[in-house]
Amino acid sequence: MTEADWPRVWPFWREIVEAGETYAYPLDLTSEQARALWTMAPPGQTVVLEDDGEVLGSATMGPNRPGRGAHVGTASFMVSAKARGRGVGRRLGEFVVAWHREQGFRAIQFNAVVETNHAAVALWQSLGFRVVGTVPEAFDSREHGLVGLLVMHLDLMA
């Protein structure tokens, strides 16, 4: 993702956060605050998937924890509402898994997949992730109330 991409990511980033179903970011963030939270500095990176000049989605990836936890990666994904159902999430997910392998990570851990985000859970499971735990009532979904956050894991050494 380049500096020029953020203004094309920000509208769907804000829309997804404000929907209150998948991310626990504060609702009152400015564009610059949101960009600082979303973009990953090296050794991580943030990417966009675009088609014909339109940004369809974005992913951020890198170490899940610093220091002695840096051998396990993590990632986050957002897909524009206009691009849903077109395989954008899968393409971003496949890219993220390949990137983590190329960078020598031993695993990928998703710390907080909202359990009612059925499309994301199914996608990650189809890419080999498994649920290793649930934090009960850890997310306040606008539609469903208090729901669990799944911790998902992919062993890259298997």
Score class of each variant (00 low, 15 high):
residue 4 A to C: 05
residue 5 D to L: 00
residue 5 D to T: 04
residue 5 D to E: 01
residue 6 W to K: 08
residue 8 R to T: 02
residue 8 R to S: 12
residue 11 P to L: 05
residue 15 E to C: 00
residue 16 I to G: 07
residue 17 V to D: 05
residue 17 V to R: 08
residue 20 G to W: 00
residue 21 E to P: 03
residue 22 T to K: 04
residue 24 A to K: 01
residue 25 Y to N: 10
residue 27 L to P: 02
residue 27 L to Q: 09
residue 31 S to Q: 08
residue 31 S to W: 00
residue 32 E to H: 02
residue 34 A to T: 05
residue 34 A to S: 10
residue 37 L to N: 06
residue 38 W to D: 05
residue 42 P to W: 00
residue 43 P to C: 00
residue 43 P to G: 04
residue 43 P to H: 02
residue 44 G to M: 01
residue 46 T to N: 03
residue 46 T to Y: 02
residue 47 V to Y: 01
residue 59 A to C: 13
residue 59 A to S: 12
residue 62 G to E: 12
residue 67 G to I: 06
residue 68 R to V: 08
residue 70 A to D: 15
residue 71 H to Y: 13
residue 72 V to A: 15
residue 72 V to G: 13
residue 72 V to E: 15
residue 74 T to W: 01
residue 76 S to N: 09
residue 80 S to C: 04
residue 82 K to F: 05
residue 82 K to C: 07
residue 82 K to A: 15
residue 85 G to Q: 06
residue 86 R to E: 11
residue 86 R to S: 08
residue 88 V to W: 10
residue 90 R to S: 14
residue 92 L to D: 12
residue 96 V to I: 01
residue 96 V to H: 02
residue 97 V to N: 09
residue 97 V to K: 06
residue 97 V to C: 06
residue 97 V to I: 12
residue 98 A to N: 13
residue 101 R to Q: 14
residue 102 E to R: 10
residue 103 Q to A: 15
residue 105 F to D: 12
residue 108 I to Q: 02
residue 108 I to R: 02
residue 110 F to Y: 10
residue 110 F to E: 04
residue 112 A to G: 11
residue 113 V to S: 12
residue 115 E to H: 06
residue 116 T to R: 13
residue 116 T to K: 13
residue 116 T to C: 10
residue 117 N to T: 05
residue 120 A to R: 08
residue 121 V to P: 09
residue 123 L to T: 09
residue 124 W to Y: 14
residue 125 Q to G: 05
residue 127 L to I: 07
residue 137 E to P: 10
residue 139 F to I: 05
residue 139 F to E: 11
residue 142 R to K: 15
residue 142 R to D: 09
residue 144 H to D: 15
residue 145 G to W: 11
residue 147 V to D: 14
residue 147 V to L: 13
residue 148 G to V: 07
residue 149 L to Y: 05
residue 153 H to D: 15
residue 154 L to P: 14
residue 154 L to Q: 12
residue 155 D to L: 09
residue 156 L to F: 06
residue 158 A to D: 14
